[in-house]
Write a protein that binds this DNA or RNA. Sequence first.
DNA 1: CTGAAAGCGCTTACAG
DNA 2: CTGAAAGCGCTTACAG
Lengths: 366, 366
Amino acid sequence: MPEPKRPKGTLTIYDVAGRAGVSIASVSRVLNGQGSPRADTREKVMRAVRELSFVPDGAARALSNGLKEVIGVVFRRGGEALFEGEDESLLFMDVINRGIEVEAQRRGFDVLMSSVGFDDEDVLPRIAAIAGKTDGLILHDRMLSAVGIARLADIVPIVTLAGSPTRASMNVRCDNESGMRALVQHLVIDHAYRSIAYLSGRADSPDNRARAKVFEAEAAAADADFQVGAPWLGNYSAAGGANVIASLLDAGTKLPRAIVCANDQTALGVMHALGRRGIKVPEEVAVTGFDDVPVARHLHPPLTTVRQPMQELGARAFDMLYSRISAAAGTPDVVLPVQLIVRESCGCATNPASRAGNASIARSGT
Amino acid sequence: MPEPKRPKGTLTIYDVAGRAGVSIASVSRVLNGQGSPRADTREKVMRAVRELSFVPDGAARALSNGLKEVIGVVFRRGGEALFEGEDESLLFMDVINRGIEVEAQRRGFDVLMSSVGFDDEDVLPRIAAIAGKTDGLILHDRMLSAVGIARLADIVPIVTLAGSPTRASMNVRCDNESGMRALVQHLVIDHAYRSIAYLSGRADSPDNRARAKVFEAEAAAADADFQVGAPWLGNYSAAGGANVIASLLDAGTKLPRAIVCANDQTALGVMHALGRRGIKVPEEVAVTGFDDVPVARHLHPPLTTVRQPMQELGARAFDMLYSRISAAAGTPDVVLPVQLIVRESCGCATNPASRAGNASIARSGT
DNA sequence: CTGAAAGCGCTTACAG
DNA sequence: CTGAAAGCGCTTACAG
């Protein structure tokens, strides 16, 4: 006997119960593996579920048991004009998000991915709406003020990325200090460069501040000439890096022997700007990045940088959120180790046998 | 007077109503802009909402009005062993997903991103669970059989990507036919290559079948020697492409003058394999891709390929789903135009003034 | 314009 | 083990 197809087909647990000849409570128990339903009860229910292709409504479920099994991830998108060679998809956020998603899946959680524009002013209402649809939030770098975080933290647990923990929220970040220390030491000690500059990221970024601080300390410790601040202010974008170089060159400034960029994107812009002026990297000016984005190994020369475990960063962020959701516990502050990746843009030698693609050995120029 | 902080803090619309001295209906109306609440009613409600940092629960809302304002996106992740230089983040899925998300946001929808492993067998239950949490589904290439789609389509509207529409689902895809036609004609006519092969993608992929078919037709029409099938079976991965070349070379086979790869990833693997054997691209063998992934312009030589409007593909997919959700209407089948991107791997000349990064002009080798 | 009340589709004590 | 019933936090006719 064909089923009387309901027009707007919302099949409910009542339909299943009716067809199986049991109560809705039994259907629910079978579906969720609660209690110990009798074998034949289970059979009847499963058959009805199969025949009807029944799928329980997530909203009803969430409302009933207070768990949506969804977390939200919020990040900034676009904003800076795209620079040639700079593609949004090389942004490391994607890798972090992938890490979050994979880990979430292990726990049966799904992930609401939501981006907000770089210049959007009042993002709190938007993030609040997401909070209402989820059990917890992971916020990428510089999404919300401490006040905004505190306000939302009353609604759902929050983990921030590359920030710092607050009274109300947890944080995961990478060990900028060790990474920058290794990088600067490589330049001023291994390569013995005596003049060196730090081309910054956004001034308000905690990552940037941490990197700048260690840069100064290590350069000073090695007694190298170093430059930071005023003319060297970038914004994490390739265009920002390129602009700084262009301005300095236009002003007739002599460049230092090595330029430490706040991130890979900036380094990309710097290398491009140097290339346009015919300045050779690394022969005349060495350039380094930070992040190890996928394209870093494909640059000319391949970029020396610091690799952050981005996928793990995402996974850890989810773990922290999950333990907070399920157990109201969780470490508030986690710092992940990083790794110096020596390629060629720092001036290191080349392995002519290998094409681009290796971690620490790659061929420079031709 | 300090609020008596509820331990597990779930603030509800009742709390707001109480504080504002109105009914929950009024709170709801103010919050949703329904009806015409009096100015002072609105005031009182908004103040209470602000003071309490109230955020309505998405699950309750969804259950009540039958709209979750969430759509699901499902795609395959990982699987193929990563090849050097091949990074997951260059997969074009990310770009498509970005397109979906941006468009969804315009409508106030959020996006549940969910990946399943490449080799996961029984994905239907997992996708069904996602269907239960959303108002509609966008399925990337080859996620579900027609039967699986039909089953889920009773629950939520479905848009597939790069497939074909079914009685129950809609589809968006790019115009493989025109793209491949332009590409092959460029090789056999503009470059006058007389021998040419198609290194395929996964045999079960609709995109692959469409591309293969046009390849054959155009090569035959130009009276060129062409090879397809048996030894030329790839799987869309760089490793797959490299393996085909290695096997052919090991078997002493003479390669054709040009190799048309099913996608950019495959071309990446092919170029790498050729490089290892000292075979020059494009001087000895020309290689082309399909997709125009971000890294394509950074290869050596820059890859000639066909650009698909991936971001727009995603946006259109959402639009189709949205009109189906909100109006029960929607075109079931959309085909988007593509563009031939001529760089250097096909044998085209170079513009020495520009470094990598331009669309159709870039410098080959050194 | 506003409030009391029903209902959205589940889960889960509570009896039996 | 199983069923009747309450309740999760909203929205929305329906009266007033």
